[in-house]
């Protein structure tokens, strides 16, 4: 009587959890990679690129993966709410930060990064301003 086909409810259930976990893991790896970029890239704008792009993609993958695991429930609805919030706040916050940095006079680093300590225009002034506070 047991349903032994490939698409039996048990198999589908297991596949749902597996795909969900795999999505979540992929998203977490994206997030970690983005964080390495935030630590290693030379100036603010490249760091922001790394952080904001992986934030949205990583969060999307993680939240949709968890939604697959959670199934059709209140938990998944909350995850969906979190995702919608991220889609609004994360790019907006990045935009605000980049906007503020550009207006405050922090110049993007243009040219070839040779690995040694580089001089970025505006950085010293901003740092001094921050330290005064």
């Amino acid at each position: 009587m047991a349903d032994t086909s490939l698409f039996s409810p048990e198999n589908l259930e297991a596949a749902r959890v597996f795909v969900g976990s795999a999505l979540a893991l992929t998203g977490a790896v994206f997030s970690a990679a983005g964080s390495i970029g935030v630590l290693r890239f030379p100036d603010f704008y490249t760091r922001m690129h790394s952080a904001s792009v992986t934030d949205t993609l990583g969060a999307t993958l993680v939240l949709f993966g968890l939604m697959l695991i959670g199934g059709w429930s209140l938990v998944s609805f909350k995850l969906l709410c979190i995702w919608i919030f991220f889609m609004f706040t994360s790019p907006t916050a990045s935009n605000a930060a980049a906007n503020g940095a550009m207006k405050a006079g922090l110049e993007p680093f243009l040219g070839k990064w040779t690995g040694q300590k580089i001089k970025i225009e505006g950085q010293e002034a901003l740092r001094a301003q921050e330290d005064r506070e």
Binding site: F85, F88, T89, T92, N95, A96, N99, K103
Partner: peptide, 18 residues
């Protein structure tokens, strides 16, 4: 004078009630 916060204003209008 050339600061523009259009994105911030529009997104906040949506977020504050939520």
């Amino acid at each position: 004078s050339d600061d523009s916060h259009l994105i911030l204003r529009v997104v906040s209008k949506f977020l504050i009630p939520l």
